[in-house]
Design a protein around this nucleic acid. Structure first.
Length: 679
DNA sequence: GTTAGGG
DNA sequence: CCCTAAC
């Protein structure tokens, strides 16, 4: 089970990449449990590394291939490439064994010769491997296989460089690799695969059939379905519901070849005479196929694992190297240890792998995310938030390349993928994360940017808008953020280039101060209405005021914000009243008295306004004072007010001049004027 | 800090 | 409205 599980994990990765493989693996892996057997088939994962297929997978694939000649192969072949080949070699041993069974004895003889040679060469290694008890049985099988395989192998090599069909192709490859041709095969395989996946598959299927037909099969053929089932059970340690004799035979045959321990296997083999060969050659074979045997013994999971790992590591290296590495790794493992250790290792590896992957993916995701962040504030933030969940999910399940996709989602893997993708593509807010991200990320940057660059424009505008709706600063702030967020959607850079000279700090300070003012302003506005009865203009004025805020470039280069607040009639009235009371020039006092409530009106403002009023009242057409004001549109000042201003102005004007003069010439007029003015 | 004046 | 100068 465990092994299978491990495989499944691998498969998942694989699966993601390949639809076909995945389906198979998914279906089968769970089912398979006990038998670790053939790793012949190799899957190409998204990573590009080869992963040994589970026997179930293999079985399926075989069936698949045989029956359909499939796309599978083609796909696998294409994907596999050199790496696959290397794997094949290593794994091929096992596969070959199976094949060997199928193959004729004559062929086997040839193969045996080859194997022997190889064995001699690598005897030492083999011995090590063979030393392990379990191996022996395997070895036997291997030997058989080898014996059988030769012919087939040759055919295979020539015809089909790389066979997914595990047994034969692998066996062939293996032999070649040992002797000389491994590389060649490898090279071929890729070509063959690419070019004629179908043909190759056909050949393979034929070969496989042959295998089944051969020794093993003969024995198996005689068996009834029930018997086959039993055999299957013995072989795999589990029952099967499959009634397909052929399938059963094949499977059993394969398992037999691969797995040595099973009595049944041995048994079958014996019937065929394979036993003898195995034994005789076993020593030699062992050397040749040691890895395989070991793998079987140790546990498929481990072997697969290692293989896969090795393959991954070795990918770059030539096939030969890869194969060697594998062997080495296998050997080391074997040497290291006991099954327990191996199992531990397996577990560890299993654990590791996912971890590795996970980590890698995570790192990738993160990096991607970070990159995104850096690239765009909006996306980044969103991604960031999402990433944690999405990463995990995606990491495990998705190898999918799209960087953006990953970050997006949480939740179910599939759903996630979609969501994420959507996010990445459309930036859909489907996922919460996205939304959150948008807000979070942008606001800051935007705000900052705004603050820095558009203090007046953006912020104020926002505020103004907000104010219009409601007067309170707090609300305004929230609103502002929202608004800001929207703006943020727009290219951040829009903000642009203010003057280089103007230091950001200045702007900032100004903006901040202004913002504070603005906040205050709204309040004041609200107050105004209460205090002043003058209604009509207050609202408009307030609105206009805020709208009017504009940044004006100063000569110094600093941006000064012009907060234009139109004077309301009320204000004007108050001003006049104040002037009349305190006299012109006592602006601070007037402000205190009459404009205490208006934070935004400074004494200076009062003065200025008064000045303007005087101008208006006296200037061009005294008669049209009111008109003038209107024309300007600034504030339609009612004539009575203007008149009043004029009076005051006259009085005042009279006063000062008069004052001096009054002193000089004490005229009642002045007095009266003074009185009037104060009154 | 206030006021006056210019921009 | 802002800025500056002068008080």
């Amino acid at each position: 089970m465990e092994t299978v599980i491990g495989i499944e994990d691998n498969d998942d990765g694989k699966l993601e990449e390949r639809g076909v493989d995945r389906s198979n693996s998914a279906l089968f892996s769970p089912k398979q449990i006990s038998n670790p057997v053939v790793y012949k088939l190799v899957r190409v994962e998204g990573d590009g590394r080869l992963v040994p297929a589970t026997d179930d997978e293999v079985m399926e694939v075989e069936d698949f291939l045989e029956y359909e000649n499939s796309d599978m192969r083609v796909v696998a072949d294409t994907g596999q490439s050199l790496e696959c080949i290397s794997i094949e070699r290593s794994s091929s041993g096992k596969l070959r064994l199976e094949c060997s069974e199928g193959t004729s004895e004559a062929d086997l003889g040839k193969l045996n010769a080859k194997f022997q040679i190889l064995q001699k060469v690598k005897q030492e290694e083999k011995l090590r491997l063979s030393s392990r008890s379990p191996v022996h049985s395997h070895v036997q099988i291997d030997s058989q296989c080898s014996a059988d395989n030769p012919v087939i192998i040759e055919k295979v090599q020539s015809k089909t460089p790389y066979q997914e069909a595990p047994s034969i192709a692998s066996s062939l490859n293996y032999s070649h690799s040992n002797q000389s041709g491994s590389i060649d095969q490898c090279s071929r395989p890729s070509e063959g695969v690419i070019e004629s996946g179908s043909s190759a598959s056909a050949v393979n299927s034929a070969l496989t059939h042959d295998f089944s037909m051969t020794d093993g099969e003969i024995c198996l053929d005689k068996l009834s379905v029930k018997e086959l089932h039993e055999l299957f059970k013995v072989t795999f340690g589990r029952e099967t519901t499959v009634k397909d004799k052929q399938w059963l035979r094949r499977r059993i045959a394969m398992s037999l070849t691969n797995s040595c321990d099973v009595s049944a296997t041995t048994f079958t083999v014996k019937d065929k005479k394979i036993t003898r060969k195995c034994e005789a050659e076993s020593s030699g074979n062992v050397s040749a196929a040691p890895v395989i045997s070991v793998e079987n013994m140790a546990g498929e999971g481990d072997v697969k694992y290692k293989d896969s790992c090795v393959v991954e590591d070795c990918r770059v290296d030539d096939n030969q190297v890869a194969s060697e590495t594998r062997l080495e790794t296998l050997n080391t493992e074997h040497e290291l240890g006991d099954e327990d250790q191996q199992s531990e290792e397996r577990a560890a590896k299993r654990m590791r792998k996912p971890t590795k992957r996970y980590i890698e993916e995570l790192s990738e995701n993160e990096s991607r995310e970070y990159n995104h962040r850096s690239s765009s504030s909006n996306k980044n933030t969103g991604h960031i938030h999402v990433s944690p969940t999405s990463n995990k999910n995606t990491g495990h399940r998705h190898v999918s390349p799209t960087s953006q996709v990953r970050p997006a989602t949480n939740a179910l893997p599939e759903a996630r993928t979609f969501v994420t993708r959507l996010d990445s593509l459309g930036g859909y807010g489907v996922q919460i994360p996205c939304v959150s991200r948008v807000r979070r990320s942008r606001p800051r940057k935007t705000i900052t940017s705004l603050m820095k660059f558009h203090p007046t424009g953006m912020v104020e505008a926002a505020k103004l808008g907000n104010k219009v709706v409601r007067d309170h600063g707090s609300e305004a702030d929230s609103v502002i953020q929202d608004k800001i967020s929207k703006p943020s959607s727009m290219p951040v850079k829009i903000h642009q280039p203010v003057r280089p000279t103007e230091s950001a700090s200045d702007r900032m300070s100004k903006s901040t101060s202004e913002s504070g003012k603005e906040k205050q302003c709204p309040v004041t506005v609200t107050t105004e209405p209460r205090q002043e009865s003058k209604p009509k203009k207050t609202d408009t004025s307030s609105c206009t005021e805020e709208r009017n805020i504009v940044t004006v470039p100063t000569a110094k280069g600093g941006m000064r914000r012009k907060h234009h607040r139109a004077w309301t009639l009320v204000e004007v009235m108050k001003l006049i009243e104040g002037v009349s009371r305190c006299g012109p020039g006592r602006w601070s006092e007037i402000k205190r008295l009459s404009f205490s409530s208006y934070s935004h009106r400074t004494s200076v403002d009062l003065k200025d306004k008064w000045r303007n009023l005087l101008k208006a009242s006296f200037a061009p057409t005294p008669a049209d004072e009111g008109m003038n004001s209107r024309k300007h549109g600034t504030a339609p000042i009612p004539e009575p007010i203007l008149v009043r201003v004029r009076e005051l102005a006259e009085i005042n004007s009279q006063v000062p001049p008069n004052f001096s003069s009054s002193k000089l010439t004490t005229t009642g007029g002045t007095v009266s004027g003074d009185r009037l003015g104060y009154l």
